[in-house]
Design a protein around this nucleic acid. Structure first.
Lengths: 210, 210, 210, 210
DNA sequence: TATGAATGAGATTTCATTCAT
DNA sequence: TATGAATGAAATCTCATTCAT
């Protein structure tokens, strides 16, 4: 059964290529990924790839767009529609979200951003504008809500909402670099982190140092 | 004709090359760094560079080795020689150490490890063996000491000493990628993190929820 | 979405494509012209273009054929139907013809012949057979007529009728290459040339400058 | 006798490559010439070629520079050092110079200028500045000298010194395009042209044909 | 007929590495 | 040791041409 050399599938091509590229970038990083390889993975000729993406860099950006943006949208939606208390939200849906991130494709792209970011300023600009700043805003919103309704005392977390997600980034890197040398249960680590932070900022805590 | 940056001293050649390579890798990343450029920065011919380092990859490994190990030794020494209480140690010398890390050359190499690590398995092995595992052990030691002498209650931090340094790594990322879009005071963020963690694990805290 | 430049009329398709190609070749030269671009200019799909012209080279040849031949026919007709004296013919209709040539599309094709000719031997053969040789014959005829009726003395021009048109070719070159650096009034130059030649070959030897 | 794969000849390389490129460009034109082919002709690797010439375009410019400039210098020298009368100069050294031009490498480059000029504006600018304008000035000087010492009457040639060389250009093109279909004795044609022009501008009006 | 998505050969350019000197 | 000219493999990108629809 000879596979047809020639399939006409305009609709699906971009996604097919984007997914293949995702895999390849994840394995090798941007520079070391060969356009040829992406095309082969996508079952497509190099020429066709260039029909949809004008340069390798465009392709990279498209990958970022299609895999990372949805994650942030998801987080924003969660925050906006949740009717839980701030603490319940952080221990529940947010924790689940944070735990699965390091294993999702989006995480791999975080690695790529770190590696390739400095060489692609317009890409980091896009990433900040469309992804990171929204994520940060969502975290802020949760914390402010907790403070507003008396769950949390005012704390440095108000100024540094990033502190909620530092172990997520750490997990991404551990999984990529060290997991084969020392297994780390990132789910439990992230849970432990959230727990520690919540203990520290709970309003009912008698701990009032400073 | 650019003057060679380093005087000719036979014995120091490898170190001179290693330093030049460090600079270059820091600026451009591994792939984008040209061996030619490293040689020029070191004031040495390409041929000579290849006399000391058999490949570009060898050179990269040498750079990692010579710049990261000292940092971990420093941390280990601090932990071993300090006579402060655990909390005082974390709020004092350790905090200072953690705060300067994101701006030190070592941090840049962390970025490179993230980017290139997966392509150099023997390098990550070396890195784990000689750097990360020792750092982790040092952190554990501090926490255990605090628990042992009654400063800290037993907590998840015992199992995940990494949680002490997640914001350091996060800072490295932020400085490289987002700093130009949104300034972040990493010193204060790291301090805030240590403070939150300590509040959460203090033995005297009235907060006893589990 | 750019509107197609030509209405769909089945019969004229080849001509429409040929004209679009003419424009494109004139602007960019043979190699730099994209078949895609020609098709777009003609308001036709690439596939259809290949239905009429089997290769890019065939298309090029068709362009040459359809735009150059008319010019030579025009010259031949002028020569054959004119009832002027040889000198009056050269100073009148012929001069006018020669003056407009460098700015006509045909001139652009002359440039293309020069550039691409050596790569297309059958094309230059066609060009010689159907264009150049006829033009040369027409020039000869005029000169012979002048000699026969006593206007001109026998001269080297009899052997080299080309000498009547060398400044036309020169003008084509100048307009393409140097006009922006130094303006040249090609009309006056061509007229001056004809005048000089006529003075040199006049039978009566008297100076009849006007 | 195995040819050495590796010869160190820094001095001669640029000239060797330039000559090989000259040949290749002459045969195929700019676009159709493959850098690979130039390298092979020069007996050199592609990489080395790029060590001396940063792009194909740079190489092309170098070819123009090294082959055409000398010709114009030669003409200028002839004009300045000659002590002949204007007519004797034109019939003697100048004629000889003009006759050999169409067969010299410089001529081929004229063809290339026509073909590629429009795509390389900076090249034509260079060509005008360093070659054509000087040639034109030299021609003007000769004519003015003839008028000044009473040999020539004032004529349109004063305004269009180009008319002295139009058959040279014509010869270049005939040789490239039509010579195989109809032989043209360009030496005699150029001589005839000079003769015609001189007859037309002689101050004494008498026919001095030789 | 008519389309334009898809192909694949090949072009320019780069760069780690080698090796004559 | 020391140099840097020279190599050659490979990477990105282009485009004439084909062919399923």
């Amino acid at each position: 059964m000879p596979k047809p050399r020639y399939r006409r599938r305009k609709e699906d091509r971009p996604a097919e290529i984007t997914e293949a590229a995702m895999e390849a970038f994840a394995e090798k990083g941007y520079d070391a990924t060969r356009v040829d390889d992406v095309a082969r993975r996508a079952g497509v000729s190099k020429g066709l790839l260039y029909l949809y993406f004008r340069t390798k860099e465009e392709l990279f950006k498209a990958v970022i767009r299609s895999f990372v943006s949805p994650k942030v949208t998801e987080l924003q939606d969660m925050v906006q529609t949740s009717e839980l208390s701030a603490e319940a939200f952080l221990r529940g849906p947010f924790l689940a979200f944070a735990q699965q991130l390091p294993r999702s494709p989006a995480a791999i792209l975080v690695r790529l951003m770190i590696a390739e970011g400095p060489k692609h300023p317009d890409l980091t600009a896009y990433y900040w504008e469309n992804v990171a700043s929204h994520g940060l805003a969502a975290l802020s919103q949760v914390i402010r809500r907790g403070v507003a309704n008396g769950e949390f005392r005012p704390s440095a977390l108000d100024d540094f909402p990033q502190l909620l997600v530092t172990p997520v980034l750490f997990s991404v890197l551990w999984l990529t670099v060290f997991q084969q040398h020392r297994r780390l249960d990132t789910d439990r680590m992230i849970e432990a982190h959230i727990d520690l932070v919540l203990r520290a900022i709970r309003a009912d805590g008698k701990d009032k140092r400073i």
